[in-house]
Design a protein around this nucleic acid. Sequence first.
DNA 1: CTCGTCTTGTCAATTTATTGACAAGCTTGG
DNA 2: CCAAGCTTGTCAATAAATTGACAAGACGAG
Lengths: 224, 224
Amino acid sequence: MKILLVEDEAAIQEQLKNALNKEGYAVDQAFDGEDGLYYATEYPLDMAIIDIGLPKLNGLDLISKIREQGHAFPILILTARSRWQEKVEGLSRGADDYLVKPFQVEELLARVNALLRRSSGFATPIITRGPIELNSSTKQIKLNGGELDLTAYEYKVLEYLMMNPEKVVSKTELTEHLYEQDHDKDSNVLEVFVRRLRKKLDPEGLLNPIETLRGRGYRINPTL
Amino acid sequence: MKILLVEDEAAIQEQLKNALNKEGYAVDQAFDGEDGLYYATEYPLDMAIIDIGLPKLNGLDLISKIREQGHAFPILILTARSRWQEKVEGLSRGADDYLVKPFQVEELLARVNALLRRSSGFATPIITRGPIELNSSTKQIKLNGGELDLTAYEYKVLEYLMMNPEKVVSKTELTEHLYEQDHDKDSNVLEVFVRRLRKKLDPEGLLNPIETLRGRGYRINPTL
DNA sequence: CTCGTCTTGTCAATTTATTGACAAGCTTGG
DNA sequence: CCAAGCTTGTCAATAAATTGACAAGACGAG
């Protein structure tokens, strides 16, 4: 899952980026409103966290522009305590939730998790498909009831696929959502992760949990 | 769909085989009960048509042996008018339907069609999946409501896949059910037919009606 | 019966995915 | 701070499917 973080105070940027990374999210960073708009326009995002008080293009206008472009991903706004009234304006321009600074990082992470989950159309943090159960809040996987441990990236790949059931997810899409900015296009890391995932999810190779649609991408087996 | 025809009178064999072929079925021929048992044991069948009066191993015993082996495909028996009572015994041994000789070939075809359809679990002759509609009684295909014409083999491939929705059908299975006895194992005819089918069903390549499961086979797209 | 057309089957080139082995990078506990 | 172990990423070999072009065969109209 990729999150755009628009925040001008460098210290907060770093702190939040680290926390989000640890939680397993890819973060694109922008330090002013114009930059933020650029990322929102050019790259696929799963959500944005926007500080209202921004140089160049203020947070409220940034939200408006993003929504004008038709992007539907959730937006979480951050406001200074002294300007808490702005939250109302932010929500009316299309933001989905807000947080008043200062706040606990855990609080932010909880809201981010919830927004992402709901925007994928799930009411609860647990998604089940056949023998696989994914808990997006604890980031744990159970296979036939038993704990299964996956590495961070293995989890990300599986989560993205499970959050988009029925959908054929192209390798490009997966890469763009799991990795930050740049990243080498002609590498086969993804194939390799899919392989490792398959081996852990289905060592015997019987149920084929992740299907390959040649030339189109991957999909969670809809018949599971 | 492959049918085993066990009938000792050569003239009738030929007549029926031709009729069945024209109807689009692959026919394995046996001229006595032992031969019939051999085919039923060694090859995958979709149904059998058995004349009760047979040399070596009579039709009734053949039915019993087939069922003992656990085969569930439908069996249609043929009895001479003078021995019509045998039909009762045949049915009690596991046959599914009977026909008294002489009969109209059309009558036979109609029963064969119906038996095959029902054994695939369909109540009506029309199977629909997304934009594709298959009528197993007229052997016609409609795509988005419009008539689509397929060659005989293209139809067979599609029918077999549609009769087995959700199932991943291996190339071997497809080949065995569509072609009579022998047939070259390492040919790629099947791939070629699948390609032609795909082109007719979905010229733009958008909905991917026939999926490839690498190393496992083909399947009708379950998300259609 | 024969020609022309449509269908079926073959083949080789290409594309794409899978796989194992290994190297580089990180993380962490001592 | 360092080493051991795990995770991530790269690479090359192989396997499998796709594709277009073409040849052989079947079929039907005249």
